[in-house]
Design a binder for these strands. Structure first.
Lengths: 250, 250
DNA sequence: GGCTCATGTAAAGATCGTTCACATGAGCTG
DNA sequence: CAGCTCATGTGAACGATCTTTACATGAGCC
């Protein structure tokens, strides 16, 4: 009966017109603010200007709304990873690292999605569409790993691509959850999460025999262009390089 | 007024005697069952056989109970990591990997603690004791990394120990959150989380120049004893070893 | 114009978190 | 042992949330 309510209703009529979408947006905002735990179904309804019971016409319950958001998150995630991977251009290793950065960027820039996807307690298999979306996203990493695995320098054992993909995913997720978002970011670090992950991945790749000693960590000069995909002779890093992927040793 | 209630009270008298501890235990059980999000203050009270208001005599609010549990979790975590590290015996690399396994074992065997520590939304700096406990636990990993860094084979750049520690932590945490617990464990994997992490760490260490090609992944025969801490000449793995830390290539 | 069904509302029940005034009894003081 | 005190537990109550149920509205279609 409040004036505002009548006002709203006058604007949009008895029927909202696009409540489902409005609820998703509202929830997204609330999760970004207060985390998936603090988000409340009633609040989302209020924010959309409808009664507390209305959302039940569009979502079975609060959890279904949450898993819808998680699903949407995985879809956007997939898009960003795909763009970052850019089919391996200009060279596989560079593109691979770009994927890692995109992972962190997503966690940082879309905290609400990331939260719903990985930290809200929504099980991956809550709903088939969610699971499918999650798998599609992971498949980007997997495809990238496959391309990378195919490049193992001669004389080096070829690692299973699936394993590589899982490794990379765990690194990115570990760095993101521990250091790259909200509260967790308060842990004091000697370097940025991006640098941390980049060094981690480079060391890992070197452990697999890939030549990765082409640039220091700083974002200064562009690395000298590498002949794309031509494994430069012996894959093993030249014995005893004095500097690692983490920059100059002091 | 119920018979049960009178019964309980007759057994223990008006005062509970050890309510704080009982609440912590009850909460632990509930979190293990339904996750930190699903755990309710009222439930814990009920489980301890006490009115819903009683817990407020021991905890300012629900969040304080949660962060108490997180703190306790970090303390137990520290103990287990310390035991696993065993001051670097019998050799640093072996002990280091044992720490990784202990990390996963803790996540698997103490889901309630792990949940409260890392997934409950309790910020690390919620309370100074919690933060301190968290740092003490991390310091075990850090100390181990320091010992490891000191062993870098001659001719190899020495990585910052802090960075190594953060890398290892992120790997362990990433594998644990994504693959090693409850709902998340439903993702289908080609290998166990333990093996996954072990391979990841070994490849990483190899990337840093450590010789790590001493055993396949299977848990069969004990690895041949390695002369403790005698960096065997050139640290770089003998060029072109045909099998990696992940086992035989097929 | 009238029907129908998706969509929204109001009201109500169950549960929680939290607070407040009050009850109990364990332990100290004399 | 009497009496005091204070930590600890109780019950009742408030406001908020989630969810269901019966009812209202109106958009689209015949």
């Amino acid at each position: 009966m409040s004036w505002r309510k009548e006002q709203r209703r006058a604007e949009r009529g008895y029927h909202h017109g696009n409540l489902k979408e409005a609820l998703l947006q509202a929830a997204l905002g609330l999760i970004a603010e207060k985390g998936a735990a603090g988000f409340t179904f009633a609040d989302a309804a209020r924010m959309a200007g409808v009664s507390a019971a209305a959302p039940y016409r569009h979502f079975r319950d609060r959890d279904e709304l949450l898993s819808s958001i998680a699903q949407r998150g995985f879809e956007q995630f997939e898009q960003r990873l795909t763009a970052a991977w850019d089919d391996g251009r200009p060279d596989t290793v560079t593109a691979f690292e770009r994927v890692g950065k995109a992972y962190l960027a997503f966690a940082r820039e879309e905290p609400a999605f990331y939260n719903a996807m990985f930290e809200s307690g929504v099980p991956v298999d809550a709903n088939p569409a969610l699971q499918a979306a999650s798998e599609r996203a992971f498949n980007i990493i997997r495809a990238a790993a496959e391309r990378l695995a195919a490049l193992t320098p001669p004389g080096t054992a070829r690692p299973p691509a699936m394993m590589m993909a899982l490794h990379i995913w765990s690194m990115a997720h570990g760095v993101a959850s521990l250091f790259s978002r909200g509260d967790a970011a308060r842990r004091k670090l000697p370097m940025s999460p991006d640098e941390l992950l980049e060094a981690e991945v480079l060391i890992y790749l070197r452990g697999l025999g890939f030549p990765t000693d082409r640039r220091p960590v700083g974002k200064g000069a562009e690395p000298p262009p590498v002949p794309p995909e031509a494994p430069s002779g012996s894959g093993v890093p030249p014995g005893g390089t004095p500097s690692g992927p983490w920059g100059k040793p002091k």
